[in-house]
Design a protein around this nucleic acid. Sequence first.
DNA 1: TATTGTTATACTCTATAACTATA
DNA 2: TATAGTTATAGAGTATAACAATA
Lengths: 155, 155
Amino acid sequence: MKLENTTSFDTKTAAKQPFLATMRELATTYQAFCAYDEGHIRETGLTAPQFDVICTLGNTSGMFMNQLAEKTLVTKGTLTGIIDRLEQKNLVRREVPPENRRCFLIVLTPEGEELFDKIFPTHVEYLKQKFDRLTPTELDEIKSALQRLKSIFVD
Amino acid sequence: MKLENTTSFDTKTAAKQPFLATMRELATTYQAFCAYDEGHIRETGLTAPQFDVICTLGNTSGMFMNQLAEKTLVTKGTLTGIIDRLEQKNLVRREVPPENRRCFLIVLTPEGEELFDKIFPTHVEYLKQKFDRLTPTELDEIKSALQRLKSIFVD
DNA sequence: TATTGTTATACTCTATAACTATA
DNA sequence: TATAGTTATAGAGTATAACAATA
C-alpha cells in the first residue's frame, strides 16, 4: 500500500479545519483505487514501479533513463535498480545510441512487449469494470474537481 | 514519492477510454499533494509512516498495535518495525495493560507529545496555506466528487 | 564544465509466514 | 483454539552523494 501522508487527525482539529476532510477524502479515495489497482498488478509478477515502467514503455520506441525517471516519478538512482531487475527478467534492455553514448535507450524486449500486450489491455479492462459505474458526466465532473484541487499545489 | 500505480498510458488507448484521464487525474493530484505534504514531513526528521503514527497517536490516550495498524494502513509486522524505531527515538513507548498482557498500548512519550504539539499545528497550517485557495463551496464539491469516485471501489 | 547514468552506503518499508505468549 | 504481536527472511525502493564516461 505504501501511503505517504497522514489521514487521521483528531476530531477537535478536524472540526476547526474543514479542508482536512477534503484532504482525507483525497487520500482515502486514492487508497481505495490503489488497493484495487494493485490487486491486479500483483498477479503479473511485477512490482508496482516495474509495472509502471513496462506500461510507460509500451507502444513507444524506447525512452532514455532520464525521460523514464521523469514519467514514472522515481529518481535516476532508483530507476537504475528497477531497470536492472527488469533486465534480469528479460523484459527490457539497454541500447546505446551511437550519437550520444552517455545515455541508454530503454526498450522492451520481445518478451517485454509480449507481457505488455498481455497485461495492459487486461489491466485497462479490469479498471474499466469499476469506472463503468460512473456516467460520462460524473467522470467529467470528477476530473474537473481533481484538476481544481491539483491546481492549488502549483507554484 | 512512492507511487503505486500507472499513470502513463499511450494516447491511442487513452482516447478510447476516457476514464483513464480521470484516473490519471486522481493519481497526479495525489502526487502533487504528496510532494507538497512530504516537503514538510521531511523537515521533522521522521519518515512518512513514522509521522503518520505520531499524528495518529496525538491527542489520544494510546492505541493498541492492531488499532494503529488499521488506522495507518500498515501490516502489524511492518508496524512493529516502525514502533521500534520510534521507541529508539524516544517518541513512543509500549505499555502492557495488566488486564490483557497479550497487547501493547502504544503511547506518546513526553518527548513524543512535545514533538506532536510542535509539528502538528505547524503541519496543518502548512497545508492550510494551499487549501485556503479554495472556496468553501469548492472544498465541498471536491469532497463530494471524491466520495463518489471512492464509492465505485466498494465491494 | 555539464550531462547521463552507475555505484556505494545505509536505511525504511513491504510481504509472508512461522512463532511465542497470553486468553 | 484464537488473538496480539514479534521475529525471520528476503526483497524492493528511497535518499544522497561521489563517481566515471561522454559531450
